[in-house]
């Protein structure tokens, strides 16, 4: 059972695993892997707590109903799967600041939190604008040879590489 307790697998093995997983979701559920719609549905569920059923009238929530669906369960599963994997390899660790951030920026949790919050906002907003994320467009869409997904995947990396270079080579240099 060493395979489950080892901390890292070859990226090619992981990639083949995710590819095979996508065969299964198409076959068993008629659905591609994707993560970002779960966030808009959850956002709708949270808004409903505060503002009641009126939230359902928003045009975007009519398209993506605030409810627990297949993809929402998938995202819950991701949490459990990553938790299980990290516990098996002894890598589970509460951490406020990632190692690289601590080394290059500092160990203060507040600074990291603010940047992560701003980044999370752009990720959530941009994923809805583009209609998918690195899983839905980046893997599931490109494998279906969708034109939108190939453009989106190029855009994710173009924006990401430019921002990371600016942050680490200019702002923090």
């Amino acid at each position: 059972m060493e395979i489950f307790t080892t901390p890292r697998w070859s990226p090619y093995a992981v990639g083949v695993g995710i590819g095979v997983l996508s065969w299964l979701t198409f076959l068993l559920s008629n659905k591609p892997l994707g993560c970002s719609t779960a966030f808009v549905r959850s956002a709708g569920l949270v808004e409903r707590w505060f503002r009641g059923r009126k939230v359902d009238e928003k045009p975007y929530y009519q398209q993506f109903k605030p409810q627990i669906d297949w993809e929402w369960m998938l995202v819950c599963g991701v949490l459990v799967g990553a938790l299980a994997s990290s516990l098996l390899s002894g890598q589970f660790q509460w951490a406020w600041v990632p190692a690289k951030w601590a080394a290059e920026v500092g160990t203060g949790a507040a600074g990291r939190w603010v940047v992560a919050l701003a980044g999370g906002f752009c990720v959530g907003f941009g994923a809805r604008w583009a209609g998918g994320c690195t899983s839905g467009h980046g893997i599931s869409g490109t494998l279906q040879l969708a034109v939108s997904s190939w453009i989106a995947a190029a855009g994710f990396f173009a924006g990401g590489i430019a921002t990371a270079m600016l942050l680490y080579h200019v702002i923090l240099a």
């Binding site: 951030w101 752009c122 990720v123 907003f125 690195t134 855009g155 994710f156 924006g159 990401g160």
Partner: peptide, 15 residues
């Protein structure tokens, strides 16, 4: 949408 996502991807460091 993809470019905004990309900016967030680098700031957050996760998708």
């Amino acid at each position: 949408g993809a470019l905004i996502f990309g900016v967030g991807f680098a700031l957050l460091g996760y998708c």
